[in-house]
Design a protein around this nucleic acid. Structure first.
Lengths: 245, 245
DNA sequence: CGTCCCCTTCGTACGTTGTACTAACAAAGC
DNA sequence: GCTTTGTTAGTACAACGTACGAAGGGGACG
């Protein structure tokens, strides 16, 4: 009946090619990636990507069903960057988990737009490999399945949240009409509703005060600190060994 | 020179109204909110919101400069939901921070689209009140400014990350052609590249296996567990008292 | 009450987006 | 050579955000 229908899922649908096509999914993905890195995710349109490749717009639809699939391709390319070479993979769970988390963080940092692109795409091969590496990190802990999934989820939450908020702050900082934002903040402070904020900022703009307060602690250091807190707490609750002993 | 120019920032620009207009920013925001809750954030277009209000599309532009400002209005309405009534605000830092985090989590759960809408909007009055409450939670800890900001940042990262990933999973689950996704996963497992994943899932689809593995632990419970891990670890590193003693 | 001003409303139109449909091209098999 | 069909791409349409400017109508004043 419906047995001759093509699969709806990108990953199960083979890349076309009995007669060598001019392009490949990889090529299309990296063209899109280049545009996103250079001009932001919003600049990635089917027309723009096609133009980058010197192709007609509709040509892309031969390799990909919808734009969402193009985005899925981009995401999986990014997940590829996250993978850790087997040789560098640490043995001890704490180090392995930290390595995976830091690598993920670095990639999300390098492609800030990935956070919005990652929304709701079905996991591709590289995403699966990443999940596999995460599980591998916990292989020797003796945790049961539920604990493993929970722990990995918590760490992933933190990593993604950090990258997400950092991208947000970054976007806000460059979009902000800072003078007016500062003025607004001051006017709000005058209502007396914000004693703690006022004490912290002293009536000056957050985007200039925050870096001062956190001086000496890079974004990366703060990420690491939070991750360490999280893993410490997790180790206690799950009765896992910490590197210290 | 430029002294008569209107402020560019939404919050410093008073809502129009020498002669009572037909609508208000609040009314517009809640119409938009209703649409987003009912039909998803993508359904919120200027035309759609105007239609919901029985107004012409361009009428909205009298109350708001761009669609981004409409979104900012929606976000601030949501931040309003996050605020904790003064009477319910706990004294002890651990309880206060937990209360703020859980309330934030609940709201983000109630409006999953908020995670994508929150992208890069400048903080409004309610966002400032939320920040004030967060700082108030740490008022009695004796931490210095840098430690406070770091701790709040880490907690916010985790809360947002959890909500973000939950929304992502939720979106993926209902968008997924599950049968095909499962088949793809199986075919990947057959490469032998995924021993740990295979052991965990046993060749079945993740969306059906994961709930089983985590049975007995609701999403909320897992969120709480992760938050507790984080706060435990933070307390140790920052030498803060924990509720247990 | 009439009149005029300007606050408020909104119709039209433009450029951009994703993509359905369909025609044109070109390489492989006979 | 022709035919088949895999591959490329032009045209067209609906939906989007929003600039522009004309229309409507409520308030103050005569």
């Amino acid at each position: 009946m419906a047995s001759t229908e093509e699969p709806a899922l990108l990953w199960t649908r083979p890349e076309p090619g009995t007669r060598r096509p001019k392009f490949t999914r990889d090529g299309i993905a990296s063209a899109a990636l280049a545009i996103a890195d250079r001009e932001g995710f919003a600049a990635v349109s089917m027309r723009r990507v096609a133009a980058e490749l010197g192709a007609g717009t509709m040509t892309l639809y031969y390799y990909v069903r919808t734009k969402d699939e193009l985005v899925a391709l981009m995401d999986d390319a990014i997940m590829g960057e996250v993978l850790i070479p087997a040789a560098e993979f640490p043995d001890f769970w704490y180090d392995a988990l930290t390595a995976v988390a830091e690598r993920t963080w670095e990639v999300l940092k390098r492609h800030p737009w990935a956070m919005q692109a990652l929304r709701g795409v079905s996991p591709g091969p590289n995403a699966m490999r990443h999940a596999e590496q995460s599980l591998a990190a916990l292989a020797t802990t003796g945790l049961d399945a539920a604990a493993k999934v929970t722990l990995l989820g918590v760490v992933d939450d933190y990593v993604h949240g950090n990258a997400f908020r950092a991208a947000e702050v970054h976007a806000a900082r460059e979009a902000a009409a800072n003078e007016e934002a500062a003025q607004f903040a001051r006017s709000q402070f005058e209502t007396g509703e914000f004693p703690h904020s006022e004490a912290l900022f002293g009536g000056r703009d957050g985007t200039e005060v925050l870096p001062e307060i956190l001086s000496g602690l890079s974004e990366r250091d703060r990420f690491r600190q939070g991750l360490a807190m999280l893993l410490d707490g997790a180790a206690v609750r799950l009765k896992l060994a910490l590197p210290g002993n």
